[in-house]
Structure formats: C-alpha cells, structure tokens
C-alpha cells in the first residue's frame, strides 16, 4: 500500500457495508444511507485523484509507479458496483411496495427513501397505472387476482372499524373490529393487502 494511505481496512469496506445493510434487513426498508453513499463517492474521488496524479507524472515524464493504476481502477469499479447494487436492491423493494400498497406509500416506508427514490416510485406508479389503463377496453387492475382462485368466497376477519363497504354485487357490509365475514374474493383482496382484513380459514 501507498505509505500515505493510512486507513488500515480494505479499500471497499464502506461499499460492502451498503450491500450488507440490505442483505441483513430482508423484509424491511432500511433508511437511505446518505452518509455511506457519500463516503463511497469520496473514496472513488480519492482513488481517481491519485490515478490522475500518476497519469500526469507519466505524461510529464517524471518518475512514476504504474503498479497501482489498475488495482485502483478495479477498486473504483468495485465500489461503484456495490453502490449500484445497493440502489438496485432498494429499487426492487420500492417496486414491490407499489404492488402491495398501490399508489400510496405508507409513511414508514416513505420516510426511509431519498428524494430520487420517491420520484422513482411516483414515476413507476404512473407508468404502471398508464399501462393498466391501456389494457383491454376499460383497463385492468393487475393488483387483483394475485392468487389462483380456489373458491369464490373467502373468510376474513376485520381488524379495524372500517365502516361500510360495498361489494361488487351491491351488498353493503359493515366492517367492524372483530367481525368475521365471508365475502367474494376479489372484493376483499385490496383490503387484505392494506391490513384492514385478515384471512382466516
């Protein structure tokens, strides 16, 4: 290692941390780690500056040490890859939230995202909505019919006082906390996903 490089750890430790953070929290959205991302950028900048200085020396005909040029480049690409993997994994989760919650993000998730991610969510949401609208004549809600239907009716338990709910047949059902219902599957699919209803058998 270069003598003025004091850090004792590996050059891409921080980048690895980013990836691990996602891996260790597989079922929630950890807050966007601005700090680590910035440190990674700085690392890349630092490496790049060093390489640039080295290249300058070469072109100026000064004595130089080319052995570290390629490893540095490799390190930069590796760090970049980790950063991209971090963003990519977060992006996939954001996408899955769109399928779970529809167009409205829960506050807990929203707070964990950075501005660019929120913007991505909104754009994705809009894209998907436009796509659904373009299907068939009147559009199709792809969020429905997610499981192979076994029965027309499902048994659900209401977890909160939701109030009146109209099924597609026009029946009014009062969803009060702790009431059991047998309802057409497609009617309650969204409510189950939102956590208003719970499937019971």
């Amino acid at each position: 290692m270069n003598s003025n490089d004091q850090s004792r750890g590996g050059v891409a430790d921080k980048a690895l941390q980013l990836v691990l953070e996602m891996k260790r929290n597989p079922d929630m959205m950890p807050p966007y780690n601005t700090d680590l991302m910035r440190q990674c950028q700085q690392k890349i900048d630092e490496l790049f500056q060093k390489n640039a200085a080295e290249v300058q020396k070469i072109s100026a005909g000064l004595p130089h040490d080319p052995t570290l040029l390629h490893p540095r480049l490799g390190a930069m690409i590796h760090i970049r890859r980790c950063m991209l993997a971090y963003i990519n994994e977060r992006k996939n989760r954001i996408r899955s939230y769109r399928w779970r919650y529809g167009g409205a993000l829960p506050v807990s998730v929203r707070n964990a995202l950075c501005d660019a991610e929120i913007q991505f969510f909104n754009e994705y949401s809009g894209t998907l909505a436009r796509f659904q609208q373009g299907l068939g004549e009147g559009g199709v809600n792809l969020l429905l019919h997610t499981a192979p239907p076994k029965t027309l009716f499902v048994q659900v338990r209401s977890l909160e006082d939701f109030g009146e709910f109209e099924t597609m047949d026009g029946n009014l059902v009062q969803l009060t906390k702790d009431s059991l219902h047998s309802l057409p599957r497609q009617d309650c699919e969204m409510l189950i996903r939102q956590g208003v209803l719970e499937l019971v058998h």
């Binding site: 991302m37 913007q119 991505f120």
Partner: peptide, 19 residues
C-alpha cells in the same frame, strides 16, 4: 427512463467522467 434517472441521481452523477 425512470430507472436510469434513479441511478443517475444517486450514483452516476457523482462519478468521474470515465466511470
């Protein structure tokens, strides 16, 4: 497009030109 924008804003923007 949306995906590219996300990557651009979070990572690419801060990369040196070569990368």
């Amino acid at each position: 497009l949306a995906e590219a924008e996300l990557f651009e804003k979070t990572v690419i923007e801060f990369m040196p030109v070569a990368l």
